[in-house]
């Protein structure tokens, strides 16, 4: 196995949504103490239920922190052309230039992210001209045409307005827009949600092809475990604003260590398996006032006293397999 080089490291990253209601400050701890590494040339998936902090993590990593979201502590360090730089160290203009050329972003399929009164071609040109010192319009146009061709999309889309395209085609155009400047990192925020499975399959294939072609990193947020199984190399499981488990996709599906991950995997339908599926008991906790100790303990069937009192640390139980759970750690020690 070739040596893996990190492209992004986060260290104890914390970001809260702060509100002031009736004179009392309220903090929604959407992201609390998240530490992980992302390697070059991998597809990293982030999974978890709604409201677990997936999208917040993406916003923070992409530098889109806007009030009421606030960065509280920790760091996210990118390796850009060999230099390590914190995302929080950039000024506005540097950040603007980094976007799309170094890292780009694919939003949800259901969002209307294309300007309704402007042809797709113009939208490509706007992005190209914003980031590249192209001499004239023709040059920028060539880049757009070349890119659309290389992705195997019909050239007519360039002449179209957004409302003339189908939902699937619009999402493909979004992916094409995100990759036109060959970024090193692509963030996907539920890019396949709101598409039917046939279109989903095509979009996933397109993403895979692009990743192979550009040889870059894709960070993919989705709650859809099937998409993760199909697309990702490694998965991070989030629960209530924390990263609870990170491992290779194969291991997550074969041998999940955290009780929450186990529930998540066991709830997936398997061919030939007719047993009843068990859902996670209870509801996700409020992030304004999360439970003490391990945040999963109120719903965990194995919870012990220690889980209620102390927060588990994020430990590497096997090479490349991290988990934050006392039970799993103990079991690991006994077995090891």
């Amino acid at each position: 196995m070739e040596e893996r080089r990190t492209i992004l490291r986060t260290k104890n990253l914390k970001a809260y949504y702060s509100f002031k209601a009736f004179g009392i400050d309220r903090n929604i701890k959407a992201l609390d103490d998240v530490t992980f590494d992302i390697y070059e040339k991998e597809i990293f998936g982030i999974a978890g239920e709604s409201g677990c902090g997936k999208s917040t993590l993406m916003k923070v990593l992409y530098g889109l922190i806007k009030s009421p979201l606030r960065h509280i502590g920790g760091d996210a360090i990118y390796k850009i052309n060999g230099n390590e730089r914190s995302i929080f160290s950039f000024d506005k203009e540097t950040l603007r230039k980094l976007r799309w050329s170094f890292m780009s972003y694919i939003p949800q399929g259901s969002m209307n992210i294309l300007n309704p009164t402007v042809r797709i071609k113009k939208q490509f040109l706007n992005i190209i001209k914003a980031h590249k010192d192209v001499v004239n319009v023709d040059e920028a146009e060539d880049i757009a045409v070349e890119h659309i061709k290389s992705l195997g999309l019909p050239l007519e889309v360039l002449r179209s307005y957004p409302h003339q395209l189908s939902g699937g085609m619009r999402q493909r155009v979004t992916i094409a827009l995100a990759t036109v400047l060959k970024p090193r990192i692509i963030f996907g925020d539920e890019p396949t949600t709101a598409l039917d499975v046939v279109v989903q399959r095509g979009v996933i294939q397109l993403l895979k092809d692009i990743q192979k072609e550009l040889n870059n990193t894709v960070i993919m947020v989705t709650h859809d475990m099937a998409v993760h199984a199909e697309l990702t190399d490694r998965i991070g499981i989030m629960y209530a604003g924390k990263m609870v488990e990170i491992a290779s996709t194969r291991e997550i599906f074969k041998e999940p260590l955290h009780p929450y991950t186990q529930y998540l995997i066991n709830s997936l339908p398997k061919i030939g398996d007719k047993s009843e599926k068990v859902s996670v008991p209870g509801a996700p906790p409020s992030l304004a006032n999360p439970p003490s100790g391990c945040r999963f303990h109120p719903r965990c069937p194995y919870a012990k006293q220690i889980c209620k009192e102390q927060e588990p640390t994020f430990e590497e139980l096997k090479p490349g397999h991290f988990v934050a759970c006392f039970i799993a750690t103990k079991r690991g020690v006994e077995n090891g």
């Binding site: 889109l64 603007r96 976007r99 972003y105 992210i113 706007n126």
Partner: peptide, 16 residues
């Protein structure tokens, strides 16, 4: 609107 937020995320200059 989504498309304006997206244009901001895409680093398109503010005047544009």
């Amino acid at each position: 609107e989504d498309y304006v937020q997206y244009a901001e995320a895409a680093g398109i200059p503010q005047s544009k």
